[in-house]
Structure formats: C-alpha cells, structure tokens
Design a protein around this nucleic acid. Structure first.
Length: 602
RNA sequence: GGAGUCAUAGUUCAGUUGGUUAGAACGCCAGCCUGUCACGUUGGAGGUCGCGGGUUCGAGCCCCGUUGACUCCGCCA
C-alpha cells in the first residue's frame, strides 16, 4: 500500500543540506538512487533535481521506518522526515556536495513504487551508457541523469539571458505564425493540410525570414524571437528537423551594428560558464577562411593551417598535378607537427577519409634524416625538398597533400585538419574561439541546373563595392559568370568550428530585389506568385534593415561541452527523424484523412 | 539517394580456425550483515545471438538480403 502525500511539504532539496543545517528537522522527497542494506541499518541515496543526500534508517531507533525502508527499491519515489546529523569522523563523502551530513530518518513515506528500469541510469565507475535507441525510447528516464538535467537547465538559462540581453537593447519579442505558406526554394517544407480549405496546405516555417522583414517595413524597428524552425532535411549530429533560433532583425542597420549585437549576445551567454569572449570578435572574410582553413566555419582552437603548394609545384611534369594546375585547380597541404611516424595503415585511413570529400588521393611527405614521400618517385628529391622548405616543415613533421578542384581541396583538407586534430588531441577543451566570417559570396553556381542559387537567401543585399559587377552580370548575358564573384553583405558567427549564427543586410529597394530575382532565374511572374505580398510591401517605404539568426542548440552545445544536439534538447529525434518514445511520425485515422480530402497512395 | 560502424542475458560487453551445455561484470530476486557510499557475502533466476534466407555434417562466427541506432557525403535559400 502506497502512502499519500497529504499536506506534507519539502523543507529542502536533496542537494542543499550542509554542516550548518545540523540539528534541523527536515523533510526530503525524491527518487531512490541507491539502497545499501546492512540488515539492521539501511542507507539510501535520495536524488532529486538538485543532488543526492544520504538517508540513514536504523532498526534500533525507528522500527517501522526501517521496515518500510527494507521494501524500497531503486527509483521508488519516497518522502522522509528526519534530522540532519554531521557524519561521524571518517565517513564523510567528498564526492557528494552533501557529503558532510546525513539525514537520520524516523518516518518514511513510499509515494510511489517503480518497476526495475530497462537500463541503469549511470553505471558507477563507467562511462558506458545504454544504447542511444533504448535511452530515446525511455527518454523520461534518460532525462533523470544529472548530466542531461544540467544541460536542459543550462539551455533555459541561456534563453533567459538572451531575452534579457535583447530586451535591454530595446528589441521587441514578436511571435510569428507557425502555419505559413510553402515556398519551393531552400529546405524542404513540412506541410500541413487544411480542413477548411481542402486540397490546400500550410507550411511550417524554415525560419521567419520574410515575416521579420515585414516587421521592419511595419516600423517595429527592432524585432527578435526565440523561434522554432522546421526543415525536412536529413539530420546530422548538430542538426534536427525542428530546432530553435534566436531570430533578430533591426532597421537602419549596417553590418557593424549587427556584429555588435551578435558579439554582445554571445559574450553575455558565454559568461554563464565564466568564459569571457574577446571584444570585438576576430574577423575573417569568407575567401580568407576558405584559403587558410578550407572551411567557412574554421575551428580556431588549433593551428595547422592549409598551405598552398601550387607555386612550388608550378611546371611539374607529374601529369596529375600538372593537369590540376592547368585546370585552375589547387595543390595544398597541412603540416602535422611531429607525426612523421604515422604508419602506412593510418595514412591509408586518412586517404579513405579525404576521398569522402571527393579527393582522388592523399599524398604525404615524412620529414626525417632520410625524408620519404609517396611522391618521391614521380617528383624527385629536389621537388620534395622544395615542398619541405616552402611549408616550413621540420624534422619529424608529416606533410599531407591534396590536389584537385579548389572546392574539393578545401573540403578535403579542411575536414582532414579537424580529423587529425581530433586524433592527436590538439583541441583545447577549455578554449572558446569566436570568429566573424564576412563577405560571403552572393551566389553559388549549381552544377545540375546551370543556374546561380542564392548562397544565403534571395533577399540578401550585394556589397556596395560589387554592385556594378552584379548589374553587369545580369544585364550582359556574356558576363553572367561574374555572378560567382559578387560578394554579399552576409556573415556568420562561428565558435569553435560551429556555425552559431548567420545573417545579412537585406535588399530594401525594389529595383535591386527585381535584379536579384532575375539573377536567380526567377521570372517576374514566378517571383510575384511566391513573394507577391512581400514585393508589394517593399514599395511602401522599406527602411534599410538587416539581422541574423543564432542557433540556440548549437550555442547550448558549446555551453554544455557536448558534440551532440540531442544532449541539449529534451525530446530529440533519431537520425532518421523519428521519435522513439512517441513513435512518431505515425498514421492517422481514415476519417481524419477523409475530412482533409487526402488519399494515401501506397 | 550513397558510404561506414554497430546489433549476443534487463544493461554494458567478451565469445579463439565454423565444433560438446554461449560467458563476465553490473542490474534483478532470496538469505546473512551496524557505517556503507562502486558496501560486502552466500545462493538463484535470466538467452529467438536484431530479423529473413543461404553455404555446411554442424553457424553467434562465413555469404546474401533486411530492419534499427549512430556517424559522414549529398541535402540543409
């Protein structure tokens, strides 16, 4: 028979009692984390959100309470009444915050029992957690782990800090609809059928982009929102189909003003973990980031920058390299300090690794008394020694070389740089290195369609310096390739290699917007069909404006020191976008479908 | 859409060259135990080796397929 709570109230949490509370009568409630039974004496580790307190029940002094304690099992929910005692000398537990005291209990209430859990929450002395699918199925149990509880609370603190910060700067929190209209470009939409308008569909927002711009046209001036966003795309360790952004837009703003808001926001949030970010953040153009790090989101916690060998190898007779250089490709490398002793097996692994990014091969030079290289036969000793001296490699270093298309070399070496840093433990876990990446390209060439797509989104403003180029490329068909050179007023904030925020200054003049649609290959009719209301709005006095969106989960991953987005979300989905606890997505009744006018085709 | 890794007791894992009755630790159940906190100790229960097919005298192990989890490429304006 279970006990009832009645009017009993907790006096303390399980994490707060200390030496100074000795002698106090207390009531604690929580879950049984562990029971240690000594026959006439029983110890219970009682856990709640705040910590663990040791409970002692003795048969000698409290026969009834002890009888009850005997029946208690793991994860039972109990309430105890007792008195705080200082622990006897030699029995203090330094591993517990409450380890200097214990509660001697004279009354035990069993508020609820519990089945044996399908997995142990945390095995003492072991890092091994139960498999992820099991923990996701029983997410409510996994969430009992102190680590996850800490992360969830850290996330709440971060969001609260962000609200304070934005509010102090005079921004207004504005909610925008979750039921919007589908637009075909960008990510795939989640669509929602309408019962009232059979055969018509809403779409969930990929982001509130257009609506926040409309807010600027409305004169709301400074908008922000902690906005849920939905994208029906494949997942990654840092990507979920629904996620949360701090979405910000401001009027009469230039890039510098937006940068200050971004810097201040991350600075105030990182202070939650006692980290002081530099002010201002270091900056790098997109071109420089790609050149030096092979990535638009470089991790600056370690060096190992990419170095260019194209000049060194100019005129080489080695056909693969010669043809790469002829076709405007690149030959670049990274120097791995002191790793000339890498085995053939390791180098093979790394070669397989870069092949994923489209590289044909990974060449290497081991600098030693007798320098060896996979290229020795084809390039000759002199060329190898030129490479060694031009990249400032020293004895004991390993040079890893990739040749190919610029984009492939950047992707392969950029990823290899991180892979090697992880293998060699070169990343300082306590370092926090922010970076503003600026001057992103306005367009990306699409190999499949032969079109230029918006690199950021179709409302991004070109840089003033590139406006002429932009216009020429659109007006003169033969100069279309210039689109690839136009830079945008677009920027990202990167911390420790994670793209934590991104944004742009928007186009606020209708004529430029029309040109941009033309550049993107959107006919006026199609543009009107998709964005007509927005184009209309642009005509009624649109202020210059811009903003950014910051990923709440990625920011929290950094705050919590985890590399997995599921660790900072209460109810995440699996890599195949399922919820194993609710078993969603699921089917719906035929009657529901009928009402919506929808037929499922098998 | 593609690739890789993994799947054996409730959990985490081991399982030799394909060969008798598939093991360990933790957890669970029962007993003993007055200072534990990874309690100790005695005993016990617990297995469709993810699923389907194949090779073989014989498959946890080899082959094919499939499902799921994770990671990556593509994708993510």
């Amino acid at each position: 028979m279970l006990d009832t709570l009645g009017t009993l109230e907790r006096t303390h949490s399980c994490g707060e009692l200390r030496e100074k509370n000795v002698g106090e009568k207390v009531v604690l409630m929580g879950w049984v984390a562990k029971k240690r039974d000594f026959g006439v004496l029983t110890f219970i580790d009682l856990r709640d959100r705040d910590g663990i307190t040791q409970i002692v029940v003795s048969e000698e002094t409290d026969l009834d309470a002890h009888e009850k304690a005997k029946a208690i099992r793991g994860e039972y929910v109990i309430a105890v009444k007792g008195e705080v005692f200082s622990r006897a000398e030699g029995t203090h537990n330094k591993k517990l915050a409450t380890g200097d005291i214990e509660v001697h209990v004279h009354e035990v209430l069993i508020l609820n029992d519990a089945k044996t859990l399908p997995f142990e929450l945390e095995k003492a002395g072991s890092q091994n957690l139960a498999s992820e699918d099991l923990r996701l199925k029983y997410r409510y149990l996994d969430l009992r782990r102190p680590r996850l509880q800490h992360n969830i609370r850290m996330r709440a603190k971060a969001v609260k800090e962000i609200r304070n910060y934005m509010d102090n700067l005079g921004f207004t929190e504005i909610e925008t609809p979750i039921l919007l209209k589908s637009t075909p470009e960008g990510a795939r939409d989640f669509i929602v059928p309408s019962r009232i308008h059979t055969s018509k569909f809403f779409a969930l927002p990929q982001s509130p982009q257009i609506l926040k711009q409309i807010c600027m046209i409305s004169g709301l001036d400074k908008y922000y929102q902690i906005a849920r966003c939905f994208r029906d795309e494949d997942l990654r360790a840092d990507r979920q189909p629904e996620f949360t952004q701090l979405d910000v837009e401001m009027s009469f703003a230039n890039q510098e003003m937006v940068y200050r808001v971004i810097e201040g926001m991350f600075t105030s949030v990182l202070r939650l973990i006692d980290v002081e970010l530099p002010n201002p953040f270091p900056r790098m153009t997109y071109a420089e980031a790609m050149r030096r790090f092979g990535s638009d989101k470089p991790d600056l916690r370690f060096e190992m920058e990419l170095q260019d060998l194209s000049e060194t190898l100019k005129g080489t007779e080695f056909a693969p390299f010669a043809s790469v250089l002829e076709n405007k490709g690149e030959i670049k490398c990274i120097v791995v300090k002191g790793k000339a002793d890498y085995s053939r097996k390791t180098l093979d692994e790394l070669q397989e690794f870069v092949k994923r990014y489209g590289a044909n091969a990974l060449a290497w030079v081991k600098v030693a008394d007798e320098t060896t290289s996979s290229l020795l036969k084809v390039l000759g000793e002199e060329a190898i020694s030129n490479i060694v001296s031009n990249v400032n490699a020293e004895k004991g270093d390993l040079i890893l070389i990739v040749a190919g298309k610029k984009s492939v070399v950047a992707a392969a070496l950029g990823a290899l740089r991180i892979e090697v840093a992880k293998r060699e433990n070169l990343i300082d876990r306590n370092a926090y290195k922010p970076l503003l990446v600026t001057e992103f390209p306005m367009f990306e060439y699409n190999d499949e369609t032969g079109n230029y797509d918006a690199a950021h989104h179709p409302f991004t403003s070109p840089m003033d310096e590139d406006l002429e180029k932009f216009k020429t490329a659109i007006e003169d068909e033969s100069q279309r390739h210039l689109l690839g050179e136009v830079r945008a007023k677009a920027y990202d904030a990167v911390i420790n290699g994670y793209e934590c925020a991104g944004g742009s200054i928007r186009i606020h003049q209708k004529s430029i917007q029309a040109l941009n649609f033309k550049a993107l290959g959107l006919s006026p009719e199609v543009a009107r069909e998709r964005f007509g209301f927005f184009l209309d709005a642009l005509e009624y006095g649109t202020p210059p404006h811009g903003g950014f969106a910051a990923g709440i989960e990625r920011t929290c991953m950094i705050l919590c020191g985890t590399e997995n987005i599921r660790d900072v979300m209460a109810f995440p989905k699996t890599a195949s976008a399922q919820d194993l606890m609710m078993d969603s997505p699921g089917t719906v009744d035929d009657s529901q479908l009928k009402e919506l006018g929808i037929k499922v085709v098998e």
